[in-house]
Design a protein around this nucleic acid. Structure first.
Length: 278
DNA sequence: CGATCTACCTGATGGC
DNA sequence: TGCCATCAGGTAGATC
């Protein structure tokens, strides 16, 4: 579920409510959540440490600790990070609990258990979390210049939609924002990356930054199932600004002429307006 | 190299 | 109401 804007919203919450806090105790319920290492490694790696910062690269949350290690949290499809007073009733599927020194708890909740929590040595990231080491540029955290985007587009012969979803090219874009970005850029999802005009390349560049920035301001997108919420259980509002995602069969809000079509690309539902996206 | 398919899980939703 | 099939924001790995 969560893509760059949602993870960024969680990051900002952690910056306010977790940075500077010492972790006095840790509980790990379901072992699958810590499968990259082990229950013991996560408990031992976190206990007694202080959280120094809250960073994000793509969809990865990265919390440096005063031990020199970092915590990596990936929400995947259904993960949530919540803050609550110690002793508050925990929702089902609360797999990791960190007891903070201010009387609050951080919960990692994840019904589908695709998400994960791991403590790792950042000097050894290439071995411990290879995908993180190979991540592409993050449009918000790193910035992506037009020249960089051009190089990425022209270096391969690939449909735009799967390319935007590829975290090794650009990090943080998922299925919702890929569709919204391509709509904003007025480009069909199946256009080839190395066959765009310079004007189209520029439109895509502007769209990537504009859509992600606006979604961050809105606190991300919370769909009907309310699976994405911030640290306090509050949803975002960017779903109200969606132009194509989830609007199959509706009249295009941009051109007022086309009808939003749904296709499948890279096994993911893809929404676009055949009239204004070319 | 790139596209496609499968798998990992649980819960919500819609059809009958 | 109940049951079953289908679908979901992510990603890795196998296969063609």
């Amino acid at each position: 579920m969560p893509e760059l804007p949602e993870v960024e919203t969680v990051r900002r919450g952690l910056e306010r409510f977790a940075v500077g806090r010492r972790i006095d105790g840790v509980e790990v319920g379901r072992e699958r959540t810590v499968r990259r290492t082990s229950r013991e490694a996560v408990i031992h790696g976190l206990s007694g440490t202080t959280i120094l910062a809250a960073n994000r690269r793509g969809k990865y949350l990265l919390l440096p600790l005063d031990s020199g290690d970092e915590v990596m949290i990936h929400l995947r499809m259904s993960g949530q990070v919540l803050v609550a007073a110690a002793g508050a009733e925990r929702p089902p599927h609360t797999h990791v609990v960190m007891h903070l020194d201010d009387g609050n708890e951080l919960w990692f909740v994840d019904p589908r258990t695709f998400g994960e929590v791991v403590v790792f040595d950042p000097d050894n990231v290439g071995v411990e979390i290879p995908d993180l080491a190979r991540l592409g540029l993050d449009p918000i955290a790193d910035g992506v210049t037009l020249a960089q985007l051009r190089r990425l587009l022209r270096a391969r012969h690939r449909q735009l939609k799967p390319m935007l979803l590829d975290q090794h090219v650009i990090a943080g874009i998922g299925n919702i924002y890929a569709d919204e970005i391509l709509h904003e850029a007025r480009l069909r999802p199946d256009r080839m990356s190395d066959e765009l005009s310079t004007v189209s390349e520029r439109r895509l560049h502007v769209a990537i930054h504009r859509i992600l920035a606006e979604a961050v301001v809105a606190g991300g997108s919370t769909l009907r199932d309310a699976q994405y919420v911030d640290l306090f259980g509050e949803g975002g509002s960017y779903q109200n600004a969606h132009q194509v995602y989830g609007r199959t069969g509706e009249r295009c809000r941009t051109c007022g002429i086309g009808w939003i079509r749904r296709t499948v690309s890279a096994q993911r539902s893809t929404h676009y307006c055949p009239h204004c996206q070319r």
